[in-house]
């Protein structure tokens, strides 16, 4: 039987197009500048590096999955009725940080909230919380690859910024 990639097949593996291209470019550059021995050394280094990360990745994926299974899928909208103060911005930021999934998940939600009349400062706080301190990306990418010291320093540096972005947005909107 002839094998033809179905749309679902493409959807499942489409996200790998960019990393495959990146590795292809890296392979060509490595072979061109370092030769076959340099390329093989890089291949081994990458594999060893990945193997050493495997336990962290497993723990990260399990933790993220259980978190995702417990978090409410809908109903984030009710978190946005919390008034106009800094408290409302902090809650919106936290809601953004725990929202899992890529822009496919977050932007339709933000568009719906905007249509429902939710104020721009809260929307910015939510979006910035999601993009800057999204827990899922921290657990699955940042912690395994960068280590905990880096994660702690970055969180400490960024944790207040979504609220600040919301405040700035309110300033901009008032004009």
């Amino acid at each position: 039987m002839e094998h033809r990639p179905s749309p679902t097949h493409l959807q499942r593996h489409g996200h790998l197009a960019l990393p495959v291209a990146l590795v292809s470019v890296a392979t060509v550059l490595s072979l061109a500048f370092l030769g076959p021995s340099g390329f093989v050394a890089g291949l081994w280094a990458g594999t060893a590096d990945f193997a050493s990360l495997a336990p962290r990745i497993m723990a990260a994926v399990i933790l993220a999955a259980v978190m995702q299974a417990w978090l409410p899928r809908e109903g984030l909208g009710k978190w946005f009725g919390e008034g106009r103060g800094v408290r409302g911005l902090a809650i919106a930021s936290a809601a953004g940080a725990v929202t899992v999934g890529g822009p496919f998940a977050s932007f339709p939600l933000v568009a719906a909230l905007a249509a429902a009349g939710v104020e721009a400062g809260l929307l910015i706080a939510f979006l910035t919380g999601w993009s800057l301190i999204g827990i899922q990306r921290i657990i699955i990418w940042e912690w395994p690859l960068m280590g905990s010291d880096f994660v702690v320093l970055r969180l400490a540096s960024c944790i207040t910024l979504p609220v600040l972005a919301g405040l700035l947005m309110r300033r901009l909107s008032r004009r």
Binding site: V23, A26, A45, G46, D49
Partner: peptide, 9 residues
């Protein structure tokens, strides 16, 4: 792939 690209480059 991310780790591999990093190690090659």
């Amino acid at each position: 792939l991310a780790v591999l690209a990093a190690q090659l480059l």
